[in-house]
C-alpha cells in the first residue's frame, strides 16, 4: 500500500482500528467496549496481579504439555499414514473427520472423563491440534518425490536413515505449516476449554471479569491471548519461511 509515494506497512491499518476503538469506547455507545487506553492500562495492572500470573502459568503449562504430545503424535501419525496404505485406510477417515469436527461439543465429555482440572485442558489442546498436524505431515510425506526415496535406497540407506535423513527433512515445510495451524487451533481450544470449565486458570478470570462487569480487564485478557496466538504463529511462520525455498520446488 502506497499513499503519496510513501510505503505504508500492511499492519498500519490496525492503528486506525485502534483509534476507532478508542473513539467508540469514549463515546460510550457500546457499553461492553471501554476505550482502548483504559484496556491497556488495565492490561499493565493485570499482568502484575498474582491471580493472573498463576492462571497464565497454569495455562502455559497445559499448553506446552498438550502441544508436545500433539506434535510428536501428529507427526508420527502423519508419517504412518503417508508411508503405510493400510494405516491410511484405517485412520485417514477419522483424522479427516476430527480435523473439521465441532470439537467444542466434545469438551463436556472430556470434563466428565478427565475431571475439571488441568488434564481436561491438556486433552483439549491435543484434540484441537493433533489432527491438522497429522494431515499436514501426511501431505508433506506424500509430496516427497519418489526419486528422492529411490536415491536414498540406491545408496543403501537403512529405513531409519531414510526416515531421519531424507523423509523428515523433505516433509519439513508441511510439518511446520501443520504445527503453526495446530498452535493457532490449540490456543482456540484452550480458550474454549477454559471458558466451558470456567473454574480453572484463565477461564475463572474470564468468568469473574464478565460477571462483575470488569470489561477493561476482560478485554485486556483477550488482548493478551490474541497477542500470544499471533506471536506464536509469527515465529512459526518465520521458521516456515526459512525452509520455504524447497517447499515450492517440489510440487
Amino acid at each position: 500500500m502506497k499513499i503519496l509515494g510513501y510505503r505504508i506497512p500492511a499492519a498500519a491499518s490496525l492503528l486506525i482500528w485502534g483509534v476507532l476503538w478508542e473513539i467508540v469506547g469514549r463515546s460510550g455507545t457500546v457499553f461492553i467496549l471501554p476505550p482502548l487506553s483504559d484496556v491497556l492500562s488495565a492490561l499493565v495492572e493485570l499482568v502484575e496481579r498474582s491471580s493472573f500470573q498463576t492462571a497464565a502459568l497454569e495455562t502455559l503449562e497445559s499448553f506446552a504439555i498438550g502441544m508436545t504430545v500433539a506434535i510428536i503424535g501428529g507427526v508420527a501419525l502423519g508419517f504412518l499414514m503417508g508411508r503405510n496404505a493400510a494405516a491410511n485406510n484405517v485412520l485417514g477417515m477419522w483424522v479427516n473427520i476430527m480435523a473439521s469436527a465441532p470439537l467444542s461439543s466434545l469438551v463436556p465429555v472430556l470434563m466428565l472423563l478427565f475431571g475439571l482440572g488441568q488434564l481436561t485442558i491438556v486433552v483439549t489442546v491435543i484434540l484441537f491440534s493433533i489432527w491438522i498436524i497429522a494431515l499436514d505431515t501426511y501431505a508433506g510425506v506424500r509430496h516427497i518425490s519418489t526419486s528422492l526415496d529411490e536415491m536414498a535406497k540406491s545408496f543403501s540407506a537403512s529405513s531409519w536413515q531414510l526416515l531421519t535423513k531424507v523423509l523428515f527433512w523433505a516433509a519439513l515445510p508441511e510439518i511446520l505449516a501443520g504445527i503453526r495451524i495446530g498452535l493457532i487451533r490449540a490456543v482456540k481450544g484452550i480458550v474454549i476449554g477454559q471458558l466451558l470449565i470456567s473454574v480453572v486458570a484463565l477461564g475463572r478470570l474470564f468468568r469473574t471479569f464478565s460477571d462483575n462487569f470488569q470489561f477493561e480487564n476482560f478485554w485486556a485478557l483477550t488482548l493478551i491471548l490474541f497477542v500470544f496466538a499471533l506471536g506464536f504463529s509469527s515465529v512459526l511462520g518465520w521458521l516456515e519461511h526459512k525452509v520455504e525455498y524447497y517447499a515450492g520446488s517440489r510440487i
Binding site: 491499518s13 482456540k188 470489561f215
Partner: peptide, 22 residues
C-alpha cells in the same frame, strides 16, 4: 485490502471464542 486484511487475519488467528461471554 490494506484496511480490512489485518483485522481479519487477527480474527482468524486469535481465539475470538473468548468474546462469546461478552
Amino acid at each position: 485490502q490494506w484496511f480490512w486484511e489485518p483485522i481479519f487475519v487477527v480474527m482468524q488467528a486469535a481465539p475470538v471464542a473468548a468474546l462469546i461471554p461478552l
